[in-house]
Simulated scan of single mutants.
Amino acid sequence: MIVADDLGWANLGSRRTAETAEEAQGWAETHTPNLDALRSEGISLERHYATSSSCSLWSGRLPTHVTHGDLSVNHQMLWNKKDNNSGFDGIPRAMTGLGTKMKQAGYETHFIGKWDAGWATPEHTPLGRGFDSFLGFLQAENDYWSKDRGPLKYLLDVCLNKFRDFVLFNATYRGGVTGSIATELGCNATLVQDKPFTALGCDMDNRSKCLPDSCYEEAMFLQHAKQILRKVDTNRSKPLFLTFAHHLPHAPMQVPHSFLQKLLGCLGVI
């Protein structure tokens, strides 16, 4: 299952035309060949709406049935101590989610990308929701390059704020993405956690030094997805349920320099 976060109706190239100057400009800026192919070869649901899709997608419930926002009680920890089931930010602990149901059906389950459906306790994270492994971030919009919490910086939990964004959880490892793990994911560079970078991945203090495209968050997610698929190809003892919840095109608006050059080339700027 592939999730494109914050993808608008007009963010598909196949929805753009050249009938007006504005549409022609939009078409030139919108490059989605793979999504366009999926739409043309599959089924496009033209009137299918959801709100707060992360919670709705995993719980099957309307957003009003999950807690989100100011709980008015001990807000710093997002925890209402009078309600240890629903008194947290995110899907209530007692709700059974999609990952758990797939696990019960005998699937090998993996989650990659943006979670944002609760992280107050381990039970709220992907590992507590039926997924065998998780590579990604828990909150809404971490930085694509430094992998830190980005502008929001509200990743608070009842475990004395032990959780962090950009983590890897599986059967043998539970923690942050270290330099060695980053190298396995294609980012052979010094660990960049919490270091400020420009939107193009260049050192804020020395803009001539830029990270390689392989250190872009989405590139690392893709590398991990390929690793999972290769493993499944050699060992099909269980069916696979892989969720790839892209961060793109959600804020912060950051892309590799090579992509910007490609886009400018298509627009005839360079």
Rank of each mutant, 00 (worst) to 15 (best):
L248M: 14
C202A: 13
I270R: 05
I270Q: 11
T172N: 12
M77F: 09
K153I: 07
N235A: 14
L260K: 09
T190Q: 06
R93S: 05
S14G: 00
G26K: 12
L35Q: 00
D148C: 08
G97E: 09
E108C: 03
I91W: 06
G113Y: 06
L57M: 13
S53E: 02
M204R: 09
V269D: 03
A28C: 03
N84R: 15
A199C: 06
D6Q: 14
N85Q: 08
P239W: 04
G176V: 05
P256L: 07
M1W: 05
R164C: 03
F88R: 04
A171G: 01
R16H: 14
D203S: 12
D143K: 02
G99T: 08
P249F: 13
G90D: 03
P151F: 05
R39T: 15
N142R: 01
V3K: 00
A120E: 06
A219N: 09
C266R: 11
A219Q: 07
A189G: 01
E23C: 03
P63Q: 00
L57A: 02
R47K: 13
N80M: 05
S146C: 09
L240T: 07
L200N: 06
W115D: 03
D205F: 14
G128S: 06
K81D: 10
G130S: 04
T172C: 01
L152H: 13
N188C: 06
Y216A: 03
Q76G: 03
A4Q: 02
Q261G: 00
Y49Q: 04
F241L: 15
F166H: 04
A18I: 08
P126V: 12
T125F: 10
